[in-house]
Design a protein around this nucleic acid. Structure first.
Length: 424
RNA sequence: GGAAGUGUAGCAAAGUGGUAAUGCAACUGAUUGCUAAUCAGUGAUCCUGUAAAGGAUUCAGGGGUUCGAAUCCCCUCUCUUCCGCCA
């Protein structure tokens, strides 16, 4: 959520900035809504003040034993006009709030111009792209042996975009999760958390998935308004909703493994083959709650923590800076890590590390007590995948494949797999 | 699932229809001096205002009764205890 005070002061400048991400902010209708709200708010407060004052005097008169009937008669119609004003104001406030909740974050100045992912800017590459002296297979064919990775079983149990894994494949999938969690908590100092996989609507509003992106979520048919989480970002960041954090406790760094559930509405026909785009996938997420002045540095550090995983797995990747048009709704700046997939002959996203400024914090009322100003101020929130587990598994299968169709187990993972050196 | 309780500011805790006591913590200021004490001020959100200041809202959430609601009524939620069920 943007700062409504800044929006009031200079709506044209904000509209101009929002144009970078092709968001059309209607300054005129916002101004007229604001004008109406201001007038109505003043009128309502005047009426409330009158009611309070008069009620008080009735109380005093009664205490003295005076007759209160004439006083009651004087304010006979105050109640109705107050109620009308309050109701109108409440509707108007809701309209403005809803508008505000649907405006995306302002982009950081450093974000490059651009419309789509084609305009993203490559910052660096790491590792050597492997060359094979045999015809390579993609991860679906590699996983098909002995039903290690079984998409038909996923269809039978549920439907499209679900998978069943068996034996060493399931084990490597689990090993990746353990390896990532251990690395981030032991070497990067993140505190591990375990959280619910089902959240309420308030949490989703807090991180920005609601109200705009409900169609991307799986909603439960329960009495309460419950949703399956699309990422651990939602429960972990919302730990700090409606909270005033002690300054000494910042920065807070959490690592969390969860399954993620996404409806993938609007992605029909994209990545239909294989593990790349599933309705259910595992992810290890890094979340940081930081002081505003630290956030730019911290997001770079977090990006580095995610990169370490690929380096230890010896998987080639590149880091790109998302352009204005490709940066997500809540983010002010995003770096993607893309891993090399030989069968697709391209880099594919495996982590997205974003800086949200105070956008999520304002929605969540996540604040800290600034000991210099002695005021409660909004924190900044940062998160990134460290990493998407399914896609990491795909990258290992394709990059570590052997001529006989087996997969060499990366050195760093072998201790997590009972010393196993190859699968398939 | 059944029954009975419960929810008040960072924490603790009064308040049963007249408009949120008090204690601790924290912060600010003053005074006295020795590892601090005493006194005063300061809850949160929002609005008007350059400011000084003023006002509104806020007692788990939502609705209702009333001139006036933390207090009375209805619905929902949280936590606690007991019973039932259960990995």
């Amino acid at each position: 959520m943007l700062d409504i005070k800044r929006l009031r002061q200079n709506p044209e400048a904000i509209a101009e900035q929002l144009k970078r991400r092709s968001y059309d902010f209607d300054v005129e209708s916002f101004n007229s809504l604001e004008q109406e709200r201001k007038a109505l708010s003043i009128r309502t407060q005047e009426l409330q003040n009158e009611r309070n004052t008069r009620s008080k005097s009735i109380g005093q008169a009664k205490a003295k034993g005076e007759d209160i009937q004439p006083l009651l008669a004087e304010i006979a119609d105050l109640g109705d006009s107050l109620k009308t004003a309050e109701d109108e104001l409440s509707v108007l406030n809701q309209t403005i709030h809803h508008l505000l909740m649907s405006i995306p974050n302002l982009l950081d100045e450093s974000v490059p111009e651009g419309k789509s992912e084609d305009d993203n800017v490559e910052l660096r590459q790491w590792g050597t792209i492997p060359h094979f002296d045999f015809t390579i297979k993609d991860h679906v064919d590699l996983g098909a042996a002995d039903g290690l990775m079984d998409f038909e079983a996923g269809v039978k149990l549920t439907g499209a975009r679900f998978v069943v894994m068996r034996s060493h494949m399931a084990r490597m999938h689990r090993a990746l999760i353990q390896f990532m969690l251990n690395t981030h908590s032991d070497e990067h100092g993140y505190q591990e958390v375990y959280v619910p996989y089902i959240v309420n609507a308030d949490s989703l509003r807090g991180t920005g998935q609601l109200p705009k992106f409900e169609e991307d979520l799986f909603k439960l048919d329960s009495e309460q308004e419950y949703y399956l989480i699309p990422t651990a970002e939602v429960p972990v960041t919302n730990l700090f909703r409606d909270t005033i954090i002690k300054e000494a406790d910042l920065p807070i760094t959490h690592v969390c493994h969860t399954p993620c559930f996404r409806s993938e509405a609007g992605s029909y026909g994209r990545d239909t083959r294989g593990l790349i785009r599933q309705h259910q996938f595992e992810k290890v997420e890094l979340v940081q709650i930081v002081k505003p002045e630290d956030s730019l540095q911290k997001v770079t550090e977090l990006l580095g923590h995610a990169e370490v995983i690929l380096q230890k797995l010896e998987l080639p990747y590149r880091v790109v800076e998302l352009c204005a048009g490709d940066t997500g709704f809540s983010a002010t700046k995003t770096y993607d890590i893309e891993v090399w997939l030989p069968a697709q002959n391209t880099y594919r996203e495996i982590s997205s590390c974003s800086h949200f400024g105070d956008f999520q914090a304002r929605r969540m009322m996540a604040r800290y007590k600034n000991t210099k100003t002695n005021k409660n101020e909004l924190v900044h929130t940062i998160n990134g995948s460290g990493l998407a587990v399914g896609r990491t598994l795909v990258a290992i299968l394709e990059n570590y494949q052997q001529a006989d169709g087996s997969i060499r187990v990366p050195d760093i993972l072998q201790p997590y797999m009972g010393g196993l050196q190859k699968i398939g």
